[in-house]
Design a protein around this nucleic acid. Structure first.
Lengths: 221, 221
DNA sequence: CCTATATTCTATAGAACTATAGAATATCTT
DNA sequence: AAGATATTCTATAGTTCTATAGAATATAGG
């Protein structure tokens, strides 16, 4: 009688509260956003907001964690699916980029405002992020085992680089609603798989021509 | 007699003020950082800070613009140098990643706190960022012209993706001082040039085998 | 309609923060 | 040393913000 009351109009405002907070945090940053701003966006008075959150930090916490579990879960199911490496990679990139459009404010906040979170939530968020990265790392490791990847690939690096690149598109995706997300997903996947350089030229010597990757001259020091 | 007084101890504190502000902004965010925090990190009292900045926003502005022109300039000189595409790309990645270690707080602030800047500085920063991206885009375009790049590469995408990936390493570079930056630079360059997948298998059919890039199956809809 | 519960409101205490003014001290130049 | 300039300090006005308490209103179920 008190656990789940989905049917009534009661309780239904909590999600609106989280979304309002997310949107104001995204716009003004955590400290720039006042509880008055959030309440007004939600259509209530400043004091009333404390019915939903017992502090501003808690509001940020709920915003940051809102839906993130699902997101990590999705990553996990991609990893354990039966698809070839290329497909898993593309699915990951799809999931990551798409989520920016689906829940833009929340993710933007998640990226920028971690540091204002109370310690426990920050730890949880860090752990979820780490789980997410490890999941992707496993996909790369499997790709390496099955020979889909070049042997020299550092899987830890690879996972981090892909996540970084995807996050780099986050702001742009949020700012430019007309951007063709599917096109972007394909290009990102293509970059990660194939890189940018041409490989037309065939070897002149009779060697095995196992690798045609170009190496780059070090210009260190 | 009033323009340049480099030798005296006067004037020398301004840079410290900017660095202090940068470091506190990076830690706590713009609104989270109080002028008291900044002053204390600098070793002076709160009120004294206003000798250097006439407002907190101005401090943020100086932090964000501090050194950025040089940075964009360096990018330009890379672009106009006489090196092959691969070298230019690596130089870009080197410059970008190295700058995080050199001036970590300032760049972190630059990424996160743009939105609190007064309009004019924000515009300037946006313009500098845009110049930076265009410069990199030109390098890609030249690579495409000379045949170093695959014909299908979208240079605008490419520039943005590389910048995004580099920024993704920013936090990590700042947080982990023991990280081997040169190793990271090489891996990033390698990824962008070659991608991750193996290309060992040679074609069975007698075709020209011009491209061995794998394409990925669309799983849209 | 009545009771219980959920939601919102008003009003405010108390804390923190920005920016300014003017006095005080330090450093430079001659 | 003396005057000029640069830097820092103290003290404070005025503003804004968070969080709480308790009253008021809305909704649900019998």
């Amino acid at each position: 009688m008190e656990e789940l009351a989905e049917s009534s109009r009661y309780q239904s405002q909590k999600q609106l509260a989280i979304r309002s907070a997310a949107s104001v945090f995204a716009e003004k940053g955590f400290h720039g956003a006042s509880t008055k701003d959030i309440a007004e966006r939600m259509g209530i008075k400043q004091g009333s907001l404390y019915y939903y959150f017992k502090s501003k930090e808690e509001a940020l916490g709920e915003v940051c964690l809102f839906g993130i579990e699902d997101y990590v879960e999705r990553m996990k199911s991609i990893g354990s699916s039966d698809q070839p490496f290329e497909t898993k990679l593309m699915a990951t990139i799809t999931s990551h980029l798409t989520s920016y459009r689906e829940r833009n404010e929340a993710l933007k906040v998640h990226n920028d405002e971690r540091l204002y979170l109370p310690e426990d939530k920050r730890a949880k968020l860090k752990e979820l992020g780490s789980r997410y990265r490890q999941q992707l790392e496993k996909i790369f490791e499997e790709g390496a085992r099955t020979g889909a990847l070049r042997g020299t690939i550092d899987c830890h690096f690879a996972a981090q680089a892909v996540i970084g690149m995807c996050n780099g598109w986050g702001d742009i995706i949020v700012r430019e609603p007309e951007l063709d997300l599917f096109d972007l997903i394909q290009k990102c996947t293509d970059l990660v798989l194939n890189g940018f350089i041409e490989r037309r030229k065939t070897r002149r010597d009779g060697s095995d021509a196992v690798e045609q990757q170009r190496t780059i001259k070090s210009n260190k020091d």
